[in-house]
Simulated assay, not measured.
Amino acid sequence: MAVTIRDVAQAAGVHISTVSRAFSGSHLVKAETRERVLAAAAELGYRPNQTARALTTGRTQNIGLIVADIANPFFPPLIKSAQSRARLCSYQVFVADTDEDPRAEEELLRTLARQVDGLVLVSPRLANEEIAALGGEVPLVLVNRRVPGLCAVLMDVAHGAALAVEHLAGLGHRRLLLAGGPRNSWTSAEMRRAAEAAAAGRGLEMTLFAPNSPTEQGGIAAARAVVEARATAVIAYNDLVAVGLIEGLDALGVAVPEEVSVVGIDDTVVGRLNRPRLTTVAMPTAAAGRAAVDLLIQAVEAKDADQATAETTLGTSLVVRDSTAPAPRPEPAADAPPAA
Rank of each mutant, 00 (worst) to 15 (best):
I131D: 05
V95K: 07
F75D: 03
Q83I: 05
P102T: 06
G271C: 06
P326K: 06
E166N: 13
A231L: 05
S26F: 09
N212D: 03
A197I: 02
R21E: 06
R103M: 12
A164I: 07
V262H: 03
N128K: 13
T324R: 07
R103P: 00
E105C: 01
V8M: 04
A41S: 13
R114A: 13
R47A: 14
I16K: 02
I66E: 04
V260F: 05
V29W: 03
A40R: 01
D335S: 10
P328T: 02
A22L: 08
E301Q: 15
R21G: 00
L163I: 04
A2Q: 13
A52C: 06
E301Y: 09
A133L: 13
A223N: 03
R125D: 04
R224C: 01
A40T: 00
E247L: 13
D266A: 14
T232N: 01
F94G: 03
A198E: 14
R145E: 11
L134K: 05
R47W: 03
V93L: 02
A221Q: 14
L177R: 09
L240C: 02
E228G: 00
Y46S: 09
R175K: 14
L208F: 05
P124I: 05
V116G: 02
A86M: 01
D101S: 13
P73D: 09
V8T: 01
L208S: 02
S17L: 03
T56I: 05
R193Y: 02
T232E: 00
L252K: 04
M1W: 02
R193A: 15
V37T: 07
